[in-house]
């Protein structure tokens, strides 16, 4: 397998074939919580992409240069990664506030939510700890591979959350049976979307 093709496989696999929201059920809270308007969904998707990429980079470095050489990765990775993410989010919030107020206004309200967004921790864990990922491309990601994987996941997340928001905006005005109003119909929508994404199974042999 040539080098660029492997990156392509990792990217497509992370984005659609193993879509983080609809195929793997990670990050459902923002899907049902935030995605009632297209505009807020786009803001959320951008902030998640930003935080995720930084969190994976730092976690990868921490795992490969600190935790593994010291042989403590097995039992310290959970607290270490979550601390990295929490610190990073706090740090980003301060930097954005200082450096780019417009960007802060756009992303600011989502940043605290992202600490407890399981997607960030899941991706950081999967990018460094071998064995969790089903992708049969590579188990030990190198740093560029981990980054390609993370960006793929983030775009996949953004894609679903925006599509879902579009559907929910339409649902507001549709006649829905009484018992299904609100959350249940959102779950039905998610079921149909997930069914559609299952069509990507085995794409490119992933």
């Amino acid at each position: 397998m040539s080098e660029p093709y492997r990156y392509f496989l990792i990217f497509i696999g992370a984005m659609v074939v193993y879509n983080i929201v609809l195929i793997r059920f990670i990050a459902l809270c923002p899907l049902f919580g935030v995605s009632s308007q297209v505009e807020t969904s786009i803001g959320m998707a951008m902030s998640v992409m930003f935080v995720m990429t930084m969190a994976t980079t730092v976690s990868w470095l921490a795992w490969n240069y600190v935790l593994e050489p010291l042989h403590v990765g097995e039992f310290l990775y959970i607290p270490v990664f979550i601390l990295i993410i929490a610190t990073l989010v706090q740090f980003l919030e301060m930097v954005l506030k200082k450096v780019s107020p417009p960007l802060y206004r756009a992303m600011g309200i989502f940043l605290p939510l992202i600490t407890t967004n399981c997607a960030v921790l899941a991706v950081a864990t999967e990018a460094v700890k071998p064995g969790f990922l089903n992708l049969n491309v590579a188990y030990h990601f190198s740093l560029p591979e981990a980054l390609v994987y993370t960006i793929g996941v983030a775009i996949g997340f953004g894609l679903v959350i925006v599509v879902f928001a579009c559907i929910r905006e339409r649902l507001e005005t549709s006649p829905v049976p009484h018992a299904f109003r609100g959350a249940p119909i959102a779950f039905m929508t998610a079921a149909l979307l997930s069914l559609a994404f299952m069509g990507f199974t085995n794409l490119l042999g992933l």
Binding site: F25, P184, I185, A186, F187, M188, A191, L192, S194
Partner: peptide, 25 residues
Amino acid sequence: LIFVMFPGAFLTFGIMMALLNRYES
């Protein structure tokens, strides 16, 4: 098979919530 796969989870959970809504109303 769909019930053990991904859409089945959303479907089952949505129906459970709807049943609970109906029971309460």
